[in-house]
Amino acid sequence: MLCYFYILWSERRSKYYIGHTCDDLPERLRRHNSDHKGFTGGVGDWTIVYTEEYLEKARAYKREREVKEWKSRRRIERLIGSAGSEHPGR
Protein backbone atom coordinates (compact mmCIF):
# COMPACT_ATOMS: atom_id res chain seq x y z
CA MET A 1 0.00 0.00 0.00
CA LEU A 2 1.38 3.40 -0.97
CA CYS A 3 0.86 6.24 1.50
CA TYR A 4 1.51 9.94 1.15
CA PHE A 5 2.64 12.84 3.30
CA TYR A 6 1.30 15.99 1.63
CA ILE A 7 1.09 19.74 1.94
CA LEU A 8 -1.86 21.69 0.57
CA TRP A 9 -2.08 25.42 -0.12
CA SER A 10 -5.16 27.65 -0.07
CA GLU A 11 -4.84 31.00 -1.81
CA ARG A 12 -8.11 32.14 -0.26
CA ARG A 13 -6.87 31.49 3.29
CA SER A 14 -3.19 32.06 2.54
CA LYS A 15 -2.51 28.95 4.62
CA TYR A 16 -0.96 25.50 4.37
CA TYR A 17 -2.52 22.24 5.45
CA ILE A 18 -0.27 19.29 6.32
CA GLY A 19 -1.57 15.74 6.25
CA HIS A 20 -1.06 12.12 5.31
CA THR A 21 -3.21 9.48 3.63
CA CYS A 22 -3.11 5.96 2.29
CA ASP A 23 -6.12 6.70 0.09
CA ASP A 24 -6.06 7.82 -3.52
CA LEU A 25 -4.44 11.27 -3.31
CA PRO A 26 -6.71 13.02 -5.87
CA GLU A 27 -9.76 11.66 -4.03
CA ARG A 28 -8.36 12.90 -0.72
CA LEU A 29 -7.88 16.36 -2.25
CA ARG A 30 -11.48 16.28 -3.53
CA ARG A 31 -12.69 15.60 0.02
CA HIS A 32 -10.59 18.47 1.38
CA ASN A 33 -12.25 20.75 -1.16
CA SER A 34 -15.77 19.58 -0.34
CA ASP A 35 -18.10 21.55 1.89
CA HIS A 36 -17.53 19.96 5.30
CA LYS A 37 -16.70 21.01 8.84
CA GLY A 38 -13.07 21.22 9.78
CA PHE A 39 -9.99 23.24 8.87
CA THR A 40 -10.13 22.58 5.12
CA GLY A 41 -13.92 22.69 4.78
CA GLY A 42 -15.77 25.44 2.99
CA VAL A 43 -12.71 26.85 1.23
CA GLY A 44 -12.70 24.84 -1.99
CA ASP A 45 -9.39 26.05 -3.43
CA TRP A 46 -6.87 23.68 -1.82
CA THR A 47 -4.09 22.51 -4.15
CA ILE A 48 -1.34 19.98 -3.58
CA VAL A 49 2.02 21.75 -3.47
CA TYR A 50 4.21 18.97 -2.05
CA THR A 51 4.14 15.19 -1.58
CA GLU A 52 6.35 12.39 -0.31
CA GLU A 53 5.56 8.69 -0.84
CA TYR A 54 5.89 6.03 1.87
CA LEU A 55 5.34 2.28 1.89
CA GLU A 56 4.08 2.34 5.49
CA LYS A 57 1.32 4.45 6.99
CA ALA A 58 3.30 4.89 10.21
CA ARG A 59 6.16 6.57 8.34
CA ALA A 60 3.83 8.97 6.49
CA TYR A 61 2.16 9.87 9.79
CA LYS A 62 5.54 10.34 11.48
CA ARG A 63 6.60 12.74 8.72
CA GLU A 64 3.33 14.69 9.12
CA ARG A 65 3.93 15.06 12.86
CA GLU A 66 7.55 16.10 12.26
CA VAL A 67 6.66 18.90 9.85
CA LYS A 68 3.73 20.09 11.98
CA GLU A 69 6.10 20.41 14.94
CA TRP A 70 8.20 22.89 12.97
CA LYS A 71 5.46 25.52 13.36
CA SER A 72 7.33 27.56 10.78
CA ARG A 73 5.82 28.74 7.53
CA ARG A 74 9.27 29.72 6.28
CA ARG A 75 10.65 26.23 6.90
CA ILE A 76 7.66 24.62 5.18
CA GLU A 77 8.17 26.89 2.17
CA ARG A 78 11.85 25.90 2.04
CA LEU A 79 10.81 22.23 1.99
CA ILE A 80 8.38 22.89 -0.86
CA GLY A 81 10.99 24.92 -2.73
CA SER A 82 13.65 22.23 -2.30
CA ALA A 83 11.50 19.91 -4.41
CA GLY A 84 11.26 22.51 -7.16
CA SER A 85 7.58 23.05 -6.45
CA GLU A 86 6.12 26.43 -7.22
CA HIS A 87 2.83 27.69 -5.85
CA PRO A 88 0.99 30.99 -5.45
CA GLY A 89 1.88 31.31 -1.76
CA ARG A 90 5.52 32.13 -2.46
Rank of each mutant, 00 (worst) to 15 (best):
A60K: 00
N33G: 12
T40W: 02
G84N: 09
L79I: 13
H87S: 01
S34W: 01
D45H: 03
S72P: 02
A60L: 11
Y61E: 15
R30W: 08
R31I: 12
K68Y: 10
Y16A: 01
R12T: 15
K62P: 00
D45Y: 10
Y61R: 12
T47V: 15
G41P: 03
L2V: 08
R90P: 03
F39G: 00
Y61C: 13
L8G: 05
H87A: 02
R13Y: 06
R12M: 03
V43T: 11
H32M: 05
K15E: 14
R74D: 14
L29I: 12
R74K: 10
I7T: 03
K71Y: 06
H32W: 11
R59F: 07
V67D: 04
S10T: 08
E86T: 11
F5A: 08
K57L: 11
E86R: 14
G89E: 01
H36T: 10
E64M: 06
T40C: 13
S72D: 05
R28P: 07
F5D: 02
F39H: 12
G81V: 12
E64Q: 11
G38Q: 10
S14L: 07
P26M: 04
L8Q: 02
E56T: 12
H87P: 02
L29V: 08
G89Q: 09
K57E: 14
S85G: 00
Y50M: 11
V43N: 04
G81A: 15
S85W: 06
L2W: 02
Y61H: 15
S14Y: 00
E56N: 14
R12A: 13
F39A: 14
F5V: 03
T21C: 10
G84S: 14
D24G: 01
E77C: 09
V67I: 12
G84Q: 10
R78A: 15
G38M: 05
E27C: 11
Y6E: 00
A58N: 09
T21N: 13
T21Q: 05
D24I: 08
G19V: 06
S82T: 07
E66P: 00
V49W: 00
K15F: 04
V67M: 01
H20C: 14
Y50R: 12
L25E: 02
E53L: 14
